[in-house]
């Protein structure tokens, strides 16, 4: 498994080079997230399931989360489908929303962290919109984590329709004062030849970029785990232990992304996507 990764070594190297060059050429225009990831000392400590190239994405600010942390009360809503839950009696306790809550609470001492969920399996983005307003009213979150795209890909929903649903969800969440983070699909090697995820992952990324929404790139993260041998995602088992560890890692890394993004300031020149020429 480690050998497979060596092929992709060029990626992080080039990415670091690119950041360095970008930092040289456009110091004032780039979002602080880039500057943040450049000196290793400033980077958050790596957890054991973290992967080296995770911090290279451009981060967008989460102003409501920043405010909520300052006010010592952070409320999160997880909107998702089947891959946001685990089966069994301990499912709710071990799935990533609960792990996110635990990780945030540990990293934000003195802040009251609550995580509500609106999770039901086999829902497309359009279907999730139906219960969204009610869930937002109930949870009054400062942040909505939206896990989606898997079911849309499985049902090969029309791409435009999917993109519009995402944009609408962002609008609804922001209208009630919640920031949004997207979580893209899981990397599922066994079903890879049966679900055409790529198009939907790309649409999600593009909508996120347009609306300045950070993406928790679960797909590439899990792919890196498979490459590095962190988890054996190929294994056929009815046991829950690996699934629980995966969700624990997802929860903690998601907490990292929330905290990193909450420290990103909104620059006057706009966001990292616009060079401000």
């Amino acid at each position: 498994m480690t050998g497979r990764y060596s092929f992709g070594l060029a990626l992080p190297v080039l990415a670091v080079l690119a950041i360095a060059v970008a930092g040289q050429l456009l110091p004032g225009l780039l979002v602080p997230a880039l500057a943040q990831s450049a000196p290793p000392a400033a980077a958050p400590p790596l957890t054991e399931c973290d992967v080296p190239d995770r911090h290279t994405e451009i981060d967008f600010p989460l102003p409501q989360v920043t405010k909520a942390i300052a006010a010592k009360k952070l409320s999160v809503l997880v909107l998702g489908a089947g891959s946001s839950q685990l089966p069994g009696a301990g499912g709710a306790k071990n799935a990533y929303p609960a792990r996110l809550q635990k990780a945030l609470a540990e990293k934000l001492p003195g802040v009251e962290v609550t995580v509500a969920t609106d999770v039901k399996p086999t829902r497309t983005a359009v279907e999730m919109l139906k219960s969204l307003r009610q869930s937002l009213t109930d949870a009054k979150p400062s942040l909505m984590v939206w896990q989606t795209a898997t079911v849309d890909a499985m049902q090969s929903v029309d791409g435009d329709q999917f993109g519009q649903a995402l944009a609408k969800g962002i609008k609804i969440a922001r209208s009630v004062g919640a920031d949004v983070i997207f979580m893209n699909p899981q990397y599922s090697p066994r079903t890879e030849s049966m679900i055409a995820l790529a198009t939907y992952v790309e649409i999600l990324r593009w909508v996120a970029l347009q609306h300045e929404v950070p993406v928790f790139d679960r797909f590439n993260l899990m792919k890196s785990w498979a490459d590095l041998g962190t988890f054996d995602l190929y294994s056929a088992t009815k046991k829950l232990d690996m699934a629980e560890r995966v969700h624990d890692c997802l929860g903690r890394l998601l907490a990292d992304l929330v905290l990193e993004s909450s420290k990103v300031h909104s620059p006057e020149t706009g966001n990292g996507n616009e060079p401000g020429k």
């Binding site: 089947g82 499985m154 066994r190 079903t191 294994s235 046991k239």
Partner: peptide, 20 residues
Amino acid sequence: ISYVSKTFDNPLFAEEMGVL
């Protein structure tokens, strides 16, 4: 895919297995 549906099981990918 009939083969995969009979031999592969993993609670982590319950949603994805729905494609079968």
